[in-house]
């Protein structure tokens, strides 16, 4: 089955991962800008990172017939440094017209601090000015519920925000409805120990349905599985869910959300199919 992994950090993965993802049916991925595992020393470090996201990864992905898209921002962890964040946000417009950029992300909260909230709002100001899609990281573990509530408060407080152009990511049992009931898209992250398992993600789908929901691996430099989306496909099949419903979650939904971006390009596989 063709699928899209809407959230994966390929900068931290080896080329063999692209190969195996393609073998499993992956036709497109999107890679949000995130924390590198260490705090960068200057805004120039982000310039190099953004260059990697818009130039290097699309070429590496294309070798395996995968379309690579990216999202730009300063992540919530480094957003604690407000002056660095403002320098990075000022640099983002230089990269926004690159052909694989889908929007602003993954912005969000980490420890739910005042500085993080300030920078979250300043990213939203930029997204409103440039009319970009927004991808949102919600905090981990004990901080998730509070952080997701705060993020929804900020989104609803900003009258420029169009909920159908926002995806709230890393939702779990206690936060999925905060996203969906307010009209936002949402993503479930299949990640060992700290987030969802494929089985729990399918439980969530059974409880909330298949509208405006997608699943991703968030594969990165931590112990994670770049083939987590195919695991979800297998779990849905094991439970007897029809292929049409599976395809909606792993392919049609991310496609529908991403197609709102002016710079979306159809996956190679779809273009070749119509020839």
């Amino acid at each position: 089955m063709q699928y899209i992994d809407p959230h994966i950090h390929m900068i931290s993965r080896v080329t063999d991962d692209y190969h195996r993802m393609a073998q499993c049916g992956c036709v497109a991925i999107s890679e949000p800008a995130f924390w590198a595992g260490f705090d960068r020393g200057s805004a120039e470090g982000f310039r190099d990172y953004f260059h990697h996201l818009v130039e290097v990864e699309p070429k590496r992905a294309a070798l395996f017939g995968i379309r690579h898209f990216s999202w730009l921002c300063i992540n919530a962890k480094e957003a604690e440094n407000v002056s660095l964040s403002r320098d990075v946000i000022a640099m983002i417009p230089e990269f926004l017209q690159r052909p694989n950029v889908l929007g602003i992300g993954e912005i969000g909260l980490n420890k739910n601090t005042k500085n993080e909230a300030t920078i979250f709002q300043e990213h939203m100001d930029l997204a409103a000015k440039t009319d970009e899609l927004i991808l949102i990281h919600t905090p981990h573990l004990e901080d998730k519920y509070k952080g997701t509530r705060m993020i929804v408060d900020m989104l609803k407080n900003d009258t420029r925000v169009k909920p159908h152009r926002v995806c709230i990511d890393h939702v779990e049992e206690h936060t999925v409805k905060l996203a969906l009931d307010n009209g936002f898209w949402c993503g479930m992250t299949l990640y060992p120990t700290t987030k969802c398992t494929p089985a729990r993600a399918v439980d969530i789908i059974e409880m909330v349905g298949t509208e405006k929901i997608m699943a991703n691996s968030a594969g990165d430099w931590g112990k994670s599985d770049p083939l987590a989306v195919p695991e979800l496909i297998l779990e849905m099949r094991r439970r007897g869910h029809p292929e049409t419903a599976i395809q909606k979650v792993v392919f049609e939904n991310p496609l529908e959300f991403f197609r709102q971006s002016a710079r979306w390009q159809e996956p190679f596989a779809l273009l070749n199919f119509s020839k």
Partner: peptide, 17 residues
């Protein structure tokens, strides 16, 4: 999930757009 979550305060200071 809620048991393992920090409490949310609805009166927090939302930044101004």
């Amino acid at each position: 999930q809620k048991l393992f979550s920090l409490p949310y305060d609805a009166n927090w200071e939302i930044p101004t757009p």
